[in-house]
Amino acid sequence: MKALALIACLWAPAAFATAEPIQPIPMTLREDAARAALGRLLFNDPRLSGNGKVSCASCHSLSHGGGDGRARSAGFNGQLTLTNAPTVLNAALNFKQFWNGSADSLEAQVDQVVQNPVEMGSRWEDVVAKVAADPGYRSAFAVSYRDGVTRANIQQSIATFERTLTTPNSRFDLYLRGDSAALSAAEKAGYAKFKHFGCVSCHQGVNVGGNMFQKFGVMGEYLQKRANPSRSDLGRYLVTGLEADRYVFKVPSLRNVALTAPYFHDGSVATLEEAVEVMFRYQLGRVATREDTESIVKFLGTLTGRPAAQPWP
């Protein structure tokens, strides 16, 4: 009988772990350290923009949770971007990039942003020329890439750096890896509600989202009935042109969400509580009590982590 109980004890956590809809972020990175170091320089280099004023880090600041804290970001000449800047932290774990998923890879994301007439307003010929004119870059590229400074290599090294920006040590990851004391009782209760109320049917997987598309307003029209409609509200429709993709967005990752206010594709909601309430009403088709919202916000706070950029092989 004792043995049986023991077996049950051993079994339970294992069964529990496999059934979790959210998975911990892998602790090890398999990225080339030299290329990532080069990418870090480029990521912080304003020469990538048309007038030398903004770098990737301007809108994706690591001290601001990988975003910039603004509803919409200011591009190279001060014009506002169409959507809220999503965090660069854990972006590597998203199945596509941008709110409407128009880039299949981080490389493609870099490609688009550099040329975007509002964002960095640059031309790749110019970027390649500027980078190749810098002897430091030239020698670093010569070490990392057989063909030296090229458009593809610039994109690849920035993307490599970004792939090192995962945050595998959030308290929730510790909890998922078996450290039950990493979460308080209230936070565990929040996670239970997050699962029970159905948030987890879209915000799941290793990135707590970021692996599927969903319509904003499944259980009630939200964007349609709002004041000041914007073109960016059309979401994935702008990529595919399909009627079914109207108001459809990539489900954003909720990792580090406590650091990345304001929320939604247009940064229209200032607090996490408000965002959770909108989700309840329009995605889950139910009304949240104050208590439920607060409990879930507590859980979301445990998803905050810092990039552990070191353990490169």
């Binding site: 809809p21 998975q23 799941q204 290793v206 692996n211 599927m212």
Partner: peptide
Amino acid sequence: VHYDPLAASQS
């Protein structure tokens, strides 16, 4: 219980 495997096979 999550779509990571689907997203992985897809890519």
